[in-house]
Structure formats: structure tokens, C-alpha cells
Simulated scan of single mutants.
Amino acid sequence: MEPKSNNALELLTAIVNGDAEMEDGIAELKREGVSSLEEALQVLKDEAAQTKGSADAAAWPDFASMRRKAPPSVVANIKHVIPEVPFVLDGTLYDPSDIERFNGQELHFFTSPGKEHMLVVDDRDLMADWLQFEYFQRYRDISSPPLKYRMSPGAIFWEHDDLNGLAIGLGPNLGYWRLSEVSLGLFTGDWNDRISSFEMWTVGVVQLSDAKNFEGPFFYHVIPPGGYGSVPSLRPYGWNDRTSSCGDW
């Protein structure tokens, strides 16, 4: 089955480029007869809660948690890693080295499918609003197909580039809040600051957080519904070996 297009991705690209606002997406849903996004999301989350996963993982996403701002002392100490690719923020295309201009500011990074740059959002509420919109678009048909086909199987995170080394799996709609508490198994150590690449099936979003408990900053990889995606290396985005919590949906 060919993956479907993703209007949510198109909306995010337009927002970051300064050509649209989040209200445009909400208006589109209302035109389609959706009166309450929050109510629809709750139904979907109740279904998703039935998904079984690792004993170390918890139900995810938690959109209320995503809205919580990081403490000012934490934000003030943010030093962004210079990526290998440029990025777009508020309609401006920046060179990779320009990321240092934003030290001391919380930024959230999205891969830009088919483009040689990242999309960057500096507003946590906007980020959470868009992620809710994307989640609802992906799972709004709650009667067909059955949940087990819609939400399987999840994501695999790898220790090294090119999907090599040790690996840890994560079922759909789950997250590891503290990778420092997730063991490497027979090996000593834990999964904190070890993820270098990942792949995903059917789930549409993988979220990485630089801090435990999903405190951010965040990196996102988003693919169209029903497809397969991978990031063979997080180095180009400045996100190699820096993930302390992660989730997918």
C-alpha cells in the first residue's frame, strides 16, 4: 500500500515559512465537520492506551506535558550543536553555523522531507498544537481499519549510524521518559545519549528530547501515514548521542 500524503506536514512547512498559521489547520478540520479536536484526541488516546509495549516505556504522546516550559535556568544554558544542514526559522533560511545565534533559546527541530534543510519552531505551544493536529489527522478514522493495523509496529533506535550496533524497540504510542533507566541488557551502561539512528514503521512521528522527562529541546522526524521511514544518521542534524527521552506515535 502506498503511503498517503500528509496535509499536516504541508501545514507545518507553510507555518515555518511564514505562509500560514495554526488556525488555518484548525479551520480546515472544522470545515470537515470536526467540532472538538480535544474530544476526538481523547477517544484516540483511549484506544492507543490498549497498546502493549516495553515495561520501561509509558503511554505517549502527552500533549499537556509538551506544553510545559523548561525552567529559565535550563533554557539559559542551552548551547545548540552546529548541524551539517541549514534550517528555516520564521521564514528565514539560516546557514548551519547560525544556530549559535540562538544559544539560550529553546528550539525544536523537524526534518523536512525531500529538502536539504530542517524546519525549526521556537514556540512550544505552536509545536504542541501542530503535533495534536498531526496526531488527529493520522488516526481520525477510528472505525476502519482496525487499531492493530493502524498502529503497528513502532520504531527501533540504534546505537550507531546506518542502523547498526545495539538496538532498542518502542511500540507505537509509547515513550521512554528516562533512557538513563533503560538498560543495555547484557551490556553495562544505559541508553542515555546513545541513539545515533532510527527507523519506523506505520507510526508517523518519532520524537527525541535532549533532556529526561521530555523537557526538550526536541527533534522530530515525521512521515506520511502508513509508510516506512528512517534517519540513518543524526549527525547532520546535530543530534547524535544526545537523546535522553524519546517517543513515537
Rank of each mutant, 00 (worst) to 15 (best):
M1R: 04
E2G: 11
A8D: 06
E10T: 08
L11R: 00
T13G: 07
I15K: 08
I15E: 08
I15Q: 10
N17W: 13
A20R: 13
E23N: 12
D24A: 15
I26S: 05
L29E: 13
L29Q: 08
K30L: 13
R31W: 04
R31V: 14
E32K: 04
G33Q: 13
L37F: 04
E38I: 02
L44W: 08
K45H: 05
K45M: 11
A49H: 09
Q50M: 07
K52M: 11
S54M: 00
A55H: 12
A59S: 12
A59D: 07
W60H: 14
P61D: 10
F63Y: 15
A64R: 08
S65C: 05
M66I: 14
R68W: 04
P71E: 06
P72I: 06
V74H: 10
H80V: 15
V81T: 14
V85N: 00
P86R: 01
P86C: 05
D90A: 14
D95W: 02
D98L: 12
I99T: 02
E100C: 12
R101F: 15
F102N: 12
E106W: 07
H108V: 05
F109E: 00
P113R: 01
G114P: 03
H117W: 11
H117Q: 11
L119V: 05
L119D: 00
D122V: 06
L126W: 10
M127D: 11
D129A: 11
D129Q: 15
D129S: 13
F136Y: 11
R138M: 09
R140S: 06
I142M: 11
I142Y: 14
I142C: 10
P145V: 09
K148G: 01
I156P: 03
H160Y: 10
D162N: 15
D162H: 14
D162V: 09
G165M: 09
L166R: 04
I168L: 03
G171Y: 01
G171A: 15
P172D: 15
G175M: 10
S180A: 15
V182D: 03
V182N: 00
S183V: 04
L184P: 03
L184R: 15
L184F: 01
L184W: 03
G185E: 11
W191G: 04
D193G: 11
D193K: 05
R194S: 09
I195D: 01
I195N: 03
S196H: 12
E199F: 02
W201V: 13
G204R: 08
V205K: 05
V206G: 01
L208P: 06
S209K: 10
S209Q: 07
K212R: 10
F214T: 08
F214P: 05
E215G: 11
E215F: 05
P217N: 09
P225G: 06
G227C: 12
G229P: 03
S233F: 02
Y237D: 10
G238I: 09
W239S: 03
N240F: 10
T243E: 04
S244W: 05
C246N: 04
D248E: 12
D248F: 05
